[in-house]
């Protein structure tokens, strides 16, 4: 149970830092810590091969979300 508590506590810390950070691109750095913590605790809560797919889907999805927010903040996706 100790590893799950460590993951969840780090997620809570990262969520507090996201709220307290005033600048938008640096919020995304703290948000990635939250993504790592949640993806780790998904697998630790349910030890199953399906939980691995759930963690990978959550991680890739949230990474894509951060990528889209950062690209739009930087001035839009380059259209070729």
């Amino acid at each position: 149970m100790i590893p799950v508590l460590v993951c969840a506590g780090i997620g809570l810390y990262a969520a507090c830092r996201v709220v307290l950070e005033p600048e938008t691109p640096r919020k995304l750095l703290y948000l990635s810590v939250l993504n790592f913590a949640v993806a780790g605790s998904i697998v630790l809560l349910v030890p199953d091969i399906m939980a691995l797919f759930a963690a990978a889907a959550y991680f890739v999805g949230s990474t894509l979300e951060s990528n889209a927010i950062a690209s739009t903040w930087a001035g839009g996706v380059k259209r070729t």
């Binding site: 969520a15 938008t24 939250l34 949640v38 809560l45 927010i69």
Partner: peptide, 17 residues
Amino acid sequence: LIGVAIMTGGVIPFVVI
């Protein structure tokens, strides 16, 4: 949108448990 991402990260473990 960043707030919605935090909320999703908090809700998904409830579904997994």
